[in-house]
Design a protein around this nucleic acid. Structure first.
Lengths: 329, 329
DNA sequence: CTGAAAGCGCTTACAG
DNA sequence: CTGAAAGCGCTTACAG
């Protein structure tokens, strides 16, 4: 009746609805969920909301979920990989109908070993095919951005972002981006060097700054840095500035993700652009269809990416027009 | 039995637990919630997760909630003030036991008109005393940061952050920060001018940049900008840089919140520091105690703040030590 | 000490 | 067309 599925005389309906108003009645969703076997809530698990990409994606996911009438439970996983497991099992307690998961580490990830998987969509670079997933072709994108730097004249290019310890980064992502970087070097006939593959302690601004500082302390010579995320790139810009190294005059820098800060950093950051909103929509489309029909075969959706060229890679600073490419609606 | 409250022979308990393992049993939280009248989940409502402060606070709240064994449902409210109302009423559907709300607009806010309030903690500057709340003394803090600029030699100081339309900013916050700014001008015997109170279209980086650009277009003369948030300040830095205006040589800039980007912007940003973690802990302490006992009188917790002085306000750039003050654990 | 039963608030299939 | 009853999966007070 409350859901409007039963046919009642309109007068009766009106009287009941007035009574509901007067008594300030609200339906108990626990009871409804128990009865229906659905909660109308999904879970979202991201490494660290304090990081730009996680924040932007969670914003996009919240909007997309809201549009579909879904509530969202959010969890962070960076602190302990165990939390990915907890979240997946919680899905099976019926408090969430499904889960969007950005795995921190693939090997330790739940997905490989869970027997009875709840509806789940993995976002990001993940090397498994048992669940639905949404991804950007990180390898091709990183190759593109690295080739761009080579075209700009860079010859000793640092790839920054592999993890010195394994707290916080999706190793599959690192792997793909590193491959793309190496692809570009090889295509240009440039030598790869271990010295130019710079680790970071964590995927945060501070981590990016620490990685760049370490390079400088070691006296490594380089003329460009391909940072694996925009957040890392912001840290790199900071460390270079502290050291009196100019970007792009002395060193070129690029990022990945095209978060809002990329357009507004100093200098604005050349980066890999893709629509976070589109990413979120694709994830929720997959998830809702999976919730409806669990027998569907696993699907993978690739989100297109492009290169957003800005001043940090030595592009001419086009005043007033420099944001056109990376503009988000 | 599952919760461990009943006394059973240890042998029996072991056998049952093994059976649970084998059958891969997970408790149905909907059923438990229905029975107990508690879901173990709280709601968190913030204006926009894509904004630095919201992202940082939600990160802190998620960690604090996780430590207390609480799940968190997150909602954004900036897009439509109506959502604040929806969330408060949803709390009463028993899917969340309580709510942490960072209200966008006080006047339209739910709190004033809701008859039966669920357990709720308001965070931020709010001019009402019917609910528990956590806040920073924005007025005193903004007075401090403005006085600091005056001490640095600034005379025509812009206060940037009031809303040209009312999408996205807590008007009470704007009000408090504007008062603090005026307090400082008055204390220094400087004239206040409407021309120096710069509106922004929204509380985002882009909004801050737009506000600063408008000032420049109008030809307003100024030697410092007190931005009402760090996010706005980042936009201001960008707009000034695009216009070829140097910070701090030509204009001083300050922010509010001390988000991670403040330490890493170019130049690093002088801002009002306070512990986001402490803020989150206080909010959850208030909320959990309120959930336990709804008859408690409304309480207000003030989080201490301090001035984090960095290069953007003309402080000497102390290489390597410039982050000491604003360092977060 | 242990087991059976009641009831949380819904929704839906069923009887009247 | 309408109303009463069953049952979702738990927890706890109660009877045995």
């Amino acid at each position: 009746m409350i859901t409007g599925t039963v046919t009642v005389r309109s007068g009766t309906r009106a009287r009941v609805e007035r009574a509901m108003q007067e008594l300030d009645f609200v339906p108990n969703l626990n009871a409804r969920g128990l009865r229906n076997g659905r909660s109308g809530m999904i879970g979202v698990a991201l490494p660290d909301l304090g990081t730009d990409f996680s924040a932007s994606i969670s914003h996009a996911l919240l909007e997309a979920a809201h549009r579909r009438g879904l509530a969202v439970q959010v969890e962070e996983t960076a602190a302990e990989p165990q939390r990915e497991y907890d979240l997946v099992s919680r899905a099976r307690t019926h408090l969430v109908d499904g889960l969007v998961l950005n795995p921190v580490r693939l090997d330790d990830s739940v997905v490989g070993r869970m027997e009875h998987l709840p509806p789940i969509v993995l976002i990001g670079e993940v090397e498994q095919h048992r669940t639905d997933r949404v991804f950007v072709n990180s390898r091709a994108a990183t190759r593109t951005v690295t080739s761009h730097l080579i075209a700009q004249g860079a010859r000793r290019i640092v790839a920054l972002g592999s993890m010195s310890n394994d707290a916080g980064a999706d190793t599959a992502t690192v792997d793909q981006r590193l491959r793309g970087y190496l692809d570009a070097l090889e295509a240009a006939g440039l030598p790869a060097s271990q010295e130019l593959q710079a680790p970071v302690p964590q995927w945060t601004i501070e981590g990016g700054a620490a990685g760049a500082s370490l390079l400088l302390e070691r006296g490594t010579q380089f003329d460009a840095v391909v940072a694996f995320t925009d957040t890392l790139a912001v840290g790199v810009l900071h460390a270079l500035r502290e050291a009196g190294i100019r970007v792009p005059e002395d060193v070129l820098v690029t990022g990945f993700d095209d978060v809002e800060h990329a357009r507004f950093s100093s200098p604005p950051l050349t980066t890999v652009h893709f629509s976070h909103q589109e990413y979120a929509e694709a994830a929720l489309d997959l998830l809702t269809s999976r919730i409806e029909d669990r027998t569907l075969p696993p699907r993978a959706v690739e989100i297109p990416h492009s290169l957003a060229v800005r001043e940090s890679s030595g592009a001419a600073p086009v005043r007033g027009a420099s944001d056109a490419r990376g503009a988000r609606k």
